[in-house]
Nucleic acid binder design. Structure first.
Lengths: 344, 344
DNA sequence: ATTTATTGAGAAAGCGTTTTCTCAATCTGT
DNA sequence: ACAGATTGAGAAAACGCTTTCTCAATAAAT
């Protein structure tokens, strides 16, 4: 791009001309550099104001070698979890004057690495949500993405902090809640096998079983949608469990719906819990006991980690863990036959 | 930024050196310029590949005067509507190799104009969702934002296309559906007064009343949340209407919940409709009759409009309107006393 | 075989800033 | 008053590319 187009946009040189100073001085004034005579500074300021001069960020980016923008890579912008992470990151970053570029791989995981790389080149750093990416691929990719922070997974690549939701702890707490109520046979209606957060729940249940040997935990395969939950009813009933841990709120609602149609009372006959505390969880009949994951906070912390990487002195190597907190509503209660809560 | 930091990142000059050609040639090869000897091109390609050279988009942006990025300004990233618009824009733009920078004003409407301007300077164009901005302010802002496309509002500033959801048509169709079922007294439980889409619904109802003079339409003030819907039950019942048009699915669900508690049967005693067709609308009891707004399509079309502005030959001045389509489920039926549908 | 058209690649001028370098002018201390 | 320390502003180099300009080397035409 050479001498074409007289570039109507007004630039730093226009201001310099109007104020009768050099480009360098204008730049200094615009950046609040102190080493400039207040008188001249004022002259530049007013010239800039009169011309409504706005520095061109692109030129600035090149000169400074940074964009004040970070990329957020998500596998699916339609997924409420990632929407919320995105929102948390965006809000927190905005506080520090940073913007967010989105890279939605639309579930095409083969594109993920490329997309992340492109985003990284345009930005000062990347927040990566890539639950399905293999550990090996991540390990290879991570160094080229730094500064990078991971969401809901970790890697042992140096200088790659993470924020995590402790799904294992959440499911443990829910199981504990059912145990406290007196349930002795609990069923976990699992999510998709490929889901990383499902794996974390399984680890949590493992731990639960070890600390509660007298409680039977049966595992049922299932999915993550309302329909999956609906269709799990047969398995649930034949499992003989009185307390059901659904994979998430959606499947819990599906299950609730099916149980309701069959005339099975919740929580009198069967207790049901969800996970996530989506907005509608409180409006089901009965309102759903669930574990609320502080996803937005996680997003905000992802920015905090990124900020550490960008301007931090200390070498951050942290994994910040967020624990879901359970919210008890009407879908859980004392199992049939018992008539008093048994607090542990 | 002068001679500091030997800039470890490999650049175009490294490739040029390795391939034994000039920078210009490397650039030409990287951009698929035909006027380069295939032999040399191959040499450059392999040099680039060996060095894993990736062009720096920032330098490229400056040289080309464009970023292949568009900004999407939304008033609240937590609002499902804007999330969906964002997703639609992002997906469609990605098809053409464009990325999206998000600018969330977090409901601070005083910041909206500034944010939009900043986004514009970093991007090649802006998709603006600013339902609350005054027409005057928009008119003043619009020229400085172009190329710009508006979502769910219009302006008479030249070259400022829009995509719109026709909320008026949607509510008319829902009212028409109730009329067809035989309802003669219909209540509209309005949304927030400040809401632009509420205003559009009112206009639609106006039109409906004109074409259906024999049907009474009463207006009730209300809000946009589940709770608002729940609390509207008294007004609804005392209105004497048998068909209720709730502002949206959320308020409809609140109303449904309250009616259910009072033992009022839906749709036998009262028919209820929502608006939006949120994912849970199909899972209420009874499943909710509602109007589905094709928001994601609108987002996709917003990109289509933007593309026209960016590379289009014709001067686009279009307003693209998307009509909601009603989806009839179990929450509407023939009013008490009638026993057959009366098709119009 | 000589002139003209064509292809192809290098040199260099941007793109709009920031920042280093440089040097004149003003200030300090004695 | 004079050498040395400061302050302050302009000139120019960078940032990493793209693209025009220019010109040598071929191919085509007479």
């Amino acid at each position: 791009m050479a001498k074409r187009a007289p570039s109507n946009r007004i630039g730093i040189s226009d201001v310099a001309a109007k104020a009768g100073v050099s480009l360098a001085t204008v730049s200094r004034v615009m950046n609040g550099n102190q080493s400039v005579d207040p008188k001249i500074a004022a002259r530049v300021q007013s010239a800039a104001a009169e011309l409504k001069y706005q520095p061109n960020p692109i030129g600035r980016n090149l000169a400074r070698g940074k964009t004040e923008t970070i990329g957020v890579v998500v596998p699916d912008l339609g997924n409420p979890t990632f929407q919320t992470v995105l929102r948390g990151v965006s809000r927190a970053a905005a506080q520090d004057g940073y913007r967010v570029l989105i890279a939605d791989s639309s579930e095409v995981s083969s594109e993920e690495a490329i997309l992340a790389g492109e985003a990284r080149r345009r930005c000062d750093g990347v927040v990566l949500c890539a639950p399905r990416m293999s550990a090996a691929e991540l390990e290879e990719l991570a160094p080229s993405l730094q500064p990078m922070v991971l969401v809901n997974r970790t890697t042992n690549v140096p200088n790659s902090p993470s924020v995590m939701i402790d799904y294992g702890k959440g499911i443990q707490d829910l199981a504990g809640h059912l145990a406290d109520l007196g349930h002795t046979r609990i069923a976990y209606v699992a999510g998709p096998a490929s889901s990383a957060s499902n794996a974390l729940r399984l680890v949590g249940l493992e731990k639960f079983s070890r600390t509660h040997p007298h409680i039977e935990v049966v595992h049922l395969r299932n999915g993550s949608t309302f329909e999956d939950g609906y269709e799990s009813a047969n398995d649930v009933l034949s499992s003989g469990a009185t307390g059901i841990l659904a994979f998430n709120d959606l499947t819990a609602m599906g299950l609730l719906s099916s149980l309701n149609e069959r005339g099975i009372r919740v929580p009198e006959d069967i207790s049901v819990t969800g996970f996530d505390d989506i907005p509608f969880a409180r409006y089901t009949t009965p309102p759903l006991t669930t574990a609320a994951a502080p996803i937005m906070e996680a997003g905000e912390q992802a920015w905090a980690q990124m900020r550490e990487l960008l301007f931090g002195n200390a070498i951050t190597e942290a994994v910040r863990v967020f624990e879901p907190h359970i919210v008890v509503r009407g879908s859980t209660g004392v199992p049939h036959g018992k008539d008093s809560t048994a607090e542990s």
